[in-house]
Design a protein around this nucleic acid. Sequence first.
DNA 1: TTGTAGGCGTTATCAA
DNA 2: TTGATAACGCCTACAA
Lengths: 353, 353
Amino acid sequence: MKYIIILKKVFMNKKSATIYDISKKLNVSVATVSRALNDHPRISEATKELVRKTAKEMNYKQNNLAKALKSGETKNVGIIVPYINTNFFSSVIRGIEEELSPFGYHVIICQSHEDVTIEKKHLNTLLNAQVDGIFMSVSRTTVETEHIQNILDTSNTPIIFFDRKKDIPGISTVTIDDYRGGYIATEHLISEGYKNICHFSGDLNLEIYRNRLNGYKQALIDHHFSVKEENIISTGSSIDAGIDAIKKLWERKSVPDAIFSSSDFAALGACQELKKRKIKIPQEVAVIGFSNEPFTQFMELPMSSVDQTPVTMGKMAGQVFIESVKENSFGVSIEKKVVLAPQLHIRKSSKRK
Amino acid sequence: MKYIIILKKVFMNKKSATIYDISKKLNVSVATVSRALNDHPRISEATKELVRKTAKEMNYKQNNLAKALKSGETKNVGIIVPYINTNFFSSVIRGIEEELSPFGYHVIICQSHEDVTIEKKHLNTLLNAQVDGIFMSVSRTTVETEHIQNILDTSNTPIIFFDRKKDIPGISTVTIDDYRGGYIATEHLISEGYKNICHFSGDLNLEIYRNRLNGYKQALIDHHFSVKEENIISTGSSIDAGIDAIKKLWERKSVPDAIFSSSDFAALGACQELKKRKIKIPQEVAVIGFSNEPFTQFMELPMSSVDQTPVTMGKMAGQVFIESVKENSFGVSIEKKVVLAPQLHIRKSSKRK
DNA sequence: TTGTAGGCGTTATCAA
DNA sequence: TTGATAACGCCTACAA
């Protein structure tokens, strides 16, 4: 790392003009200036013009802090995610930002690092910062939820869960239908003629993985296949987990002809190990993952996957917030559960026909 | 998409307690309450204890808006990037957040969508929101820079460029040494014994790509290779650009035995096309990319690449900001240029030995 | 159409 | 050790 100091200079303190400064210069009251700048109907066009011109000349910038203090609205919302630099979370944030920006909102980002203590701290500082709403995906270590319940009881700040939710009455959620994701992925494999479909389940302590598994099971049942417990492999969500799973599976007498993995990474590992064993995808074995990570489409053999539509999730969460602001102004609170449809992306790894 | 309304209820307006409420309840002045909560030395321990206890009971939350209005510090900084959901930018943001969070700062994210008009608007609203500093990577369409120069002239809000900078006196920058990136990538290929190294240059209108090209050239010269203009291919940064480049190259009599691409995506395209032509990587042709996109390590044949250390970039930018806040308090402004060293990640695609 | 004045919640100065 | 009050910059009844 190089580090070069180029220039050091003393500067004058430039403090920006206020409506007070403008009013003095123009010999009108601050109220007039305020109203002129806000395009109040009962101000003469001439005055407005003059005020606006002078404001520009004096480089006036409205202090939103003062406005917020008065109005009680900061036009800021907070977002708490485990980490921001994953495709999923950064895409959700993008969706929220794009939905809310037209309404004049700014988004404040906090990372919980999967630590409930940090999550609590952020929740508090966001509240202190008077944000108008909080979006969050709970951390992995968030078990008890009184700290969230507590906010609900003591403030009007709406909270919206996305993806990783907790069941708390009064909190709206935006999630995807993981059950359906598992169902359509499995059904797709069936329709391609695969007969012995195996599932990499991920951590079954988590609701989302249980739902995907259930979708898988139901699809099998609906198409008159039997659900074999030995075909449900509890794996992690890593490449190595996928590799290991294949190794174990291929020790058996009868091997599967298709794999539906709850994780793209495990699916990738499976592809790698199958390739190593010269087992042809998709002719001999089909593979389909979950999440539609960017890398899936860049693989040499592009991999099918179930997309969680994160940008849409963010946009929906934004909409739910906007609605709740309106409802709040009527003194009403409506709890909503938005469930998004997962999108199946069919690529070469699962197309035999 | 399913959309289910679960519960609708009327709620009471819960307004949070202020130091006023506490002072009334305790029959002391607001000043005392304020001082007690701020652990002022000349307040009796008894009073402090009492105030703190009552504050907790009344669920008092400090209103940072009022505090900011008084102090002139919001403890918020703004970040403007083209899009948040790319590996590079989201990682830089992560770095900034993690560096600044311990100092009590929150980060506000804005997306310019590569549009200078939107960029200007965000710059303005951030200033209105009284942020204590602004981090930005300029949009592709940002040519003129008076709007930025203007902020410098009329406010004390420090601006820090990262990665995509503009040369504006008074603005600190944090970038990576693209020249060196090009140099070490090329040198690595030379050290692996490749003799005819070709470069995919990217858009040479952009400074970063020119620098990478120059590094490539100098490495060749320093190792007594000749720089052949026909080996410098001006490509885009897409997969297709890489595919096209290979097609064109392989129409020639003498083909290269190594490719240093300024873009991971073009490098990926090259890999795909080479594979199609049954040309072996890295035995016949080596490939190395730039950016170290996550997918490079997940490829069937993991691809070498030059890492831009985005998280470190964010952390450095955060440090520069913290320093500038200190300096500002002394009435001084120091312009800094931080240049980070790129990291070479050597993988199978370029290891012949 | 414009002006006066109070208040949003805090902190800081000056007194007591 | 504590209290009264002004100030931060803006908006908005209420008056004029």
